[in-house]
């Protein structure tokens, strides 16, 4: 279970939190919010990639921001930037590098990791025949390589920052199905997204962030499917804006 407790982070002009939320093991939570609401900051803060002012996040009771390699090897993370890869490597080399990193952290061989990477590449229609460096590939193709790199070690917790950006509609559908399969196999997923239709299809839980605060945290089923998400979010935002007025 992913538990976020009183998590706070800030920098000039912006304050996140205190944020408290829980994502149950084997569920898919989507983080939704307006531009600049703090979604990426929250995801980075959970992982300890940003200085916290207080609080923190735990995975199965273990504090994630302390960044112990053994714990981190159970987490797959895709940042909001497709540039966060090693651009001079080909995709296969990058995945090999990720595999060795996970092997060192877990202190065990991951013999099936490259086969899994190739399986994921096949599902996401990644062009494996190319010998081009990642930096020479298109945005969407690099994004696929990044996602495969995060998933090849079969993580228990997957944190994705707007993973569908740059993907064509076929790849987006393939990723949607892939993530749902991961959850069905017991993984926990927390992903930020702006796509409410997708959220209604894929997510079990909806978390809405606005101006650094959670304004809605509900089960998607309780909100009445795709038609119910937008009114619920708009209403939550309206209430929060009114409450924030001096």
């Amino acid at each position: 279970m992913l538990e976020i407790r009183n998590l706070r982070a800030s920098y000039p002009g912006f304050a996140l939190g205190p944020v408290t939320a829980t994502v149950r093991t084997g569920e898919f939570a989507t983080l939704v919010g307006t531009n600049g609401s703090g979604k990426s900051t929250l995801l980075r803060s959970i992982l300890g990639l940003q200085k916290l002012d207080g609080g923190g996040a735990q995975w199965d009771g273990l504090p994630i921001p302390e960044r112990s390699p053994a714990l981190l090897s159970l987490i797959g993370y895709v940042s909001d930037s497709p540039k966060d890869v090693l651009p001079e490597f080909t995709a296969l080399e990058y995945w090999r590098y990720c595999r060795i990193a996970h092997e060192q952290a877990r202190r065990e061989r991951l013999d099936g990791a490259m086969e899994r990477a190739e399986f994921l590449a096949d599902r996401l229609d990644f062009p494996l025949g190319q010998a081009s460096p990642l930096g020479a590939l298109s945005l969407g193709t690099t994004r696929k390589a990044q996602i495969i790199g995060a998933l090849l070690a079969e993580p228990d917790l997957v944190i994705l920052d707007e993973p569908f950006i740059g993907l064509d509609f076929i790849a987006a559908r393939a990723l949607e199905s892939l993530l749902r399969d991961l959850v069905d196999d017991g993984a926990t997923v927390l992903a930020s997204s702006h796509d409410l239709d997708l959220t209604s299809r894929i997510a079990d839980q909806l978390v809405v962030l606005h101006a650094g605060a959670i304004v809605l945290d509900r089960a998607v089923a309780d909100l009445g499917g795709s038609g119910g998400l937008e009114p619920a979010i708009v209403e939550a935002l309206r209430i929060h804006r009114e409450a924030s007025r001096p």
């Binding site: 090999r96 590098y97 460096p133 020479a136």
Partner: peptide, 26 residues
Amino acid sequence: RRRRIGWSWKGGRPSLTLGELVYSTR
């Protein structure tokens, strides 16, 4: 950037050092 890689880092002992050395030559 160059569009093609002449030779790939795929064989040999799985070593991050070797991978990073290959990376620096790219």
